[in-house]
């Protein structure tokens, strides 16, 4: 199991947002996380690379315990790629520089190595010709594909996606999902918070439904969509499908 989460709790002040999450993800597995807004999906994801501190419980990524104070957080983060809803590209850098920055400063790649790798990744996401432009000239879908390439440049063992298509115009969603699907087929371990039920149905190995800071139901996509066990899952799915 490359990701192991044991009894994860997260509080913001007195507000308990995660109330004991247990979850395991195997290497190469694609896990989709669904649930209503405010149920703690983003917080859960952000605990997996310590963008949020963990109140209690354990998170182990590739054998490294994130809650161990001796753990080098920056090293863990290099192995956990994250793709944000708002892309968060660096606007003052070219597309190429967005992708080469961290490999050069953290993995100590030379400029040539980092550039070669970045161009390879840009080809993979279909944006080889955009290397030298600034992000603001790209469409949302293109920005998100650059963001995916940027995360991949660190050779992550796990990729986290937090509603990667929610900020996109409907006609741009497909190109991002296609890239993600290819990534899944290549065997990348992925945890994807999404409202794209079609994607979850087709690509996910497993789906978890979160509500109120707990995992209410966990199953294969076929089971959870056609035969939800819990009333809350049923009512959520009836609203969204």
């Amino acid at each position: 199991m490359i990701v192991q989460v044991f009894d994860l709790h997260k509080k913001f002040g007195h507000l308990e947002v995660l109330k004991g999450i247990n979850c395991q993800v195997a290497e190469g597995e694609v896990l989709c996380v669904i649930g209503p807004s405010g149920s703690g999906k983003s917080t859960f994801l952000r605990c997996l690379n310590l963008l949020e501190s963990i109140t209690s419980g354990k998170v182990i990524i590739d054998g490294v315990d994130l809650t161990d104070p001796k753990t080098d957080i920056n090293k863990v983060r290099r192995q956990v790629g994250m793709v944000f809803q708002q892309f968060n590209l660096f606007p003052h850098m070219t597309v190429l520089r967005n992708i080469t920055l961290a490999p050069m400063t953290e993995l100590k790649l030379s400029k040539e190595e980092a550039t070669e790798k970045a161009l390879r990744l840009l080809s993979k996401v279909g944006l080889r010709d955009k290397a030298d432009v600034y992000p603001h000239t790209l469409s949302g879908g293109q920005m998100q594909r650059v963001a995916i390439a940027r995360a991949l440049a660190m050779n992550p063992k796990v990729m986290l996606f937090d509603e990667p298509t929610s900020a996109l115009d409907p006609e741009l969603v497909g190109e991002v999902l296609t890239v993600m699907k290819e990534l899944a087929q290549e065997g990348m371990t992925m945890i994807v918070v999404t409202h794209e039920m079609g994607f979850a149905r087709e690509v996910a190995d497993r789906v978890i439904f979160m509500d109120g800071g707990v995992i209410v139901e966990e199953n294969t996509p076929a089971e959870i969509f056609s035969n939800p066990k819990h009333e809350r899952t049923r009512s959520f799915l009836s609203k969204i499908l």
């Binding site: 690379n49 963008l51 920056n74 660096f90 920055l101 961290a102 995360a151």
Partner: peptide, 10 residues
């Protein structure tokens, strides 16, 4: 912006 940087391991 900070989160993107930190999530890359910077």
């Amino acid at each position: 912006q900070v989160e993107a940087g930190r999530s890359l391991g910077l």
